[in-house]
């Protein structure tokens, strides 16, 4: 009796792991076929199956080199606007969450609902005004006296825009964390004589470090991956961000799949690395933010 249950259980377990493994194959297959293709020569990827590794005769690094050359400027530009936008939106989100969670006054809920609704806005509904706004607020002429900024007006616009659209989600992430803090701890700090700003600096901020990791990782991934805002806000090709460079690489290298795949991997590399090393935080951001 016990034996049959055990073997049934064993069979169930085998079935379970088989299903899990099949799903792993499914989820990784686009990446696998892409990475194999990226290491193949043109004849290699046309004549062999996409998931088969390259043979010595069809193996080449060329695609990677060429793709990197095409994307190099885009990568630099993406880093230039993604990092400030990520840091700013996380920092501001933390401040907003503190101001709306751990102080008491009427109307907080209203402000909060407005902010949270901002997470769900389809970007299309603000695209035309955004492009108008950034042509009226002309960063290039405003900063004509400072070339490094004037030359990167599109990136400045992107950084500011992404900061603004990132604040709702980071606010929600930090708020969930701040709500879980012990109220009486903050009251104790008040009784200890700490001002609202001091409480933030000495109590809240040190306790927010894990949440900062979550918010920064989540925002970095979101902002790095975006294409739409860049399409609309970047006018000067010298300011093209990496998702734009990759799109034009794909458009101009029709049929050169090895080059396209290598380019896709190079573009994804920063977010992939972040994901591999901080997957837990990313998952927490995904689950907590709800977007």
């Amino acid at each position: 009796m016990a034996d049959t249950t055990d073997s049934r259980l064993g069979l169930n377990r085998i079935g379970l792991y088989a299903a899990l493994a099949l799903l792993v194959a499914f989820y990784l297959s686009p990446l696998e076929s892409a990475i194999m293709t990226a290491f193949k020569t043109q004849t290699g990827f046309f004549e062999t199956s996409p998931f088969v590794p390259p043979t010595p005769s069809t193996f080449t690094f060329d695609a990677w080199g060429q793709a990197f050359d095409r994307l190099e400027q885009g990568l630099v530009n993406s880093l230039l606007f993604t990092i400030p936008a990520t840091v700013l939106s996380a920092t501001l989100g933390s401040l907003v969450a503190y101001g709306l969670t751990n102080t008491k006054w009427r109307g907080q809920a209203f402000v909060l609902v407005l902010l949270v609704a901002g997470i769900f806005i389809p970007y299309q509904s603000v695209l035309v005004p955004l492009s108008r706004f950034w042509s009226i607020v002309d960063v290039a002429s405003l900063f004509a006296w400072f070339e490094p900024v004037a030359d990167r007006s599109g990136l400045v616009a992107l950084a500011v825009t992404h900061t603004a659209y990132g604040i709702p989600i980071t606010t929600l992430l930090f708020r969930a964390h701040y709500q879980s803090l012990d109220d009486s701890m903050l009251e104790a700090a008040r009784l200890d004589g700490a001002s609202i700003a001091k409480i933030y600096a000495r109590i809240i901020l040190p306790l927010s470090i894990p949440m900062f990791a979550v918010a920064l990782i989540y925002q970095f991934t979101n902002i790095w991956n975006d294409l739409l805002f860049a399409l609309v806000l970047v006018q000067n090709p010298a300011n093209d961000v990496v998702t734009m460079s990759l799109t034009s690489l794909q458009g101009s290298m029709v049929g050169q799949y090895n080059l396209q795949m290598a380019g896709a991997f190079i573009t994804a590399l920063p977010t992939l690395l972040v994901y591999i090393f901080f997957g837990e935080q990313f998952a927490e951001g995904v689950a907590g933010g709800g977007a």
């Binding site: 009486s184 701890m185 104790a188 008040r190 009784l191 004589g193 306790l207």
Partner: peptide, 19 residues
């Protein structure tokens, strides 16, 4: 203001600063 009242409070949850 609370900090000027010269009182000290002990909370049920202890309210210690964990960090």
């Amino acid at each position: 203001r609370p900090q000027d009242r010269n009182t000290a409070m002990v909370f049920q949850s202890y309210a210690l600063y964990p960090h």
